[in-house]
Write a protein that binds this DNA or RNA. Structure first.
Lengths: 141, 141
DNA sequence: ATGTATGCAAAACATTTGCACCTGG
DNA sequence: CCAGGTGCAAATGTTTTGCATACAT
């Protein structure tokens, strides 16, 4: 039950919070903008405000339930935090996002941060390019 | 002469463009927001509009003279493109930015993209943390 | 001269906030 | 019941655009 997940992080289990959490857990597209979350909820007949979507997503981020990414172009998307860190490949043609983890890169980052005297809090790696499907065919043009 | 650099990329050598290019080339802080560029130019007595700063920086980016980064928090900064790619360590306390290049990471990225069938266009790696100075002392709090 | 670039003000977005009303525990 | 949460509308901050004027070639 999502109610428990919310209480666990100290948030009241209100309707908007439950709906947003459920949406993030079930939607096939893992990366959504606040606007998308809002529209999807409206389509499903939920009476929610855009301001609430932002408030809730921000609270979820603070609570660690969700991770926010600022992709190129200034677009920010939210993604459920499943606990395991990963980086992203973003297709600049069709918008597809592929996740990956590479232990070699992770380790190199730790070494570099140490060399530079930094105490790593977080990091993100975005690789932008054209995915296989878009190379062969026409893409989304 | 910066005039040549501009013409080389197909841009007329106008006063605002020259001033902005010169500023990016000479300012000690390599990463600047549009707002910062604007304010610095005003302080130096240049009569420039914020809209022009945005227009020029966007043109520079399209021309490859400049690289734009979208840091966490939605902040975007511009940096002169010196031709050599590099990644960034960002201190979350004092805002200091340290550049680095790691050939191992670069190579792993190429391998991963290939495995996933992507044709890399670009990539960026941001490591957020606390720099040495901020760990010892108090930082900017 | 003449097409482009500029400055200004207004518009367009994305996100946040104030406030009166509603709701979960 | 009542602190906290919500919807709405208005405020904010950033980036873009329309337009008459100014400039580079």
């Amino acid at each position: 039950m999502e109610t428990q997940e919310l209480k666990k992080v100290g948030l009241k289990a209100t309707v908007p919070r439950l709906r947003i959490l459920q949406l993030l857990e079930s939607h096939k597209q893992r990366h959504l903008t606040a606007e998308e979350v809002y529209k999807i909820l409206l389509e499903v007949g939920e009476d929610v405000g855009l301001a609430t979507v932002y408030r809730v997503l921000t609270q979820f981020e603070a609570a660690g339930l969700v991770v926010r990414h600022h992709f190129e172009g200034g677009l920010s998307v939210f993604e459920l935090n499943e606990g395991c860190h990963h980086d992203h490949l973003v297709c600049t043609k069709c918008g597809k996002i592929v996740e990956f983890v590479d232990e070699v890169i992770e380790q190199r980052q730790r070494i570099i941060a140490q060399q530079k005297g930094f105490d790593i809090a977080d990091h993100c790696l975005y690789i932008y390019g054209v995915c296989g499907e878009c190379q062969g065919g026409r893409g989304n043009e």
